[in-house]
Amino acid sequence: MVYSVVVISLKVAIAASALCLLIGIPLARLMAHRRGFPFRILRVITSLPLILPPTVVGWFLLTVFSSRRPVGQWLESIGFPLVFDWKGAALAAFAGSLPMFLGPVVTAFESVDPNLPAFARTLGLSRIRVFLKVTLPLAAPGIWSGLALAFARSLGDFGASLVVAGNIPQSTQTLSMAIYDAIHDSNESAAWGLIAVSVAIAVAALLIADRQGRRTW
């Protein structure tokens, strides 16, 4: 039981962190240095999961991805159901961790000396290569700390995941849900065991991120 809970939690946290990298990095690059009205709206929208009750975030996701809705129906038809599936929990965890990820990453992009990428163009590098070879590596320490926060946050996601994916043992039950069950059932030893595992994973993740995120120049 512990094994499946840990595996599901790790799957959820890794998938949510990967989504943060995939969607969060371009989004952060877009938001850096921009102060216009559309970007303020974007900032508010991406910060909402931080303020709203997680159940509300879950409810929004459930509404969009439920099998009764077109998006949900289509996803089900291609064999990618989200509701009552660990992938739904990953999506919910992603929504919750995106604002945590964006904070340090936007700051990291803003702290890159804009003269460096501009100059790199004169060396014959296209915009995309400048981004990959100059901007991204210079922002890497901030991206690592964003990733650590996002991973730790996804690992502990509860409310939103519960609403979207449910608490199905061996299928969608994550560490935080199993801990809730153990407390609910007054199973103190199981609760302590699961808490110890989640603390160990979180500490390991933060230590790795701290090591990787150190500036080496």
Binding site: N115, L116, F119, A120, T122, V134, L138, T216
Partner: peptide, 12 residues
């Protein structure tokens, strides 16, 4: 080839 005033070497 451009040598800018403050070198702008890539620190990383």
């Amino acid at each position: 080839g451009y040598v800018p005033q403050n070198d702008l070497l890539m620190p990383h």
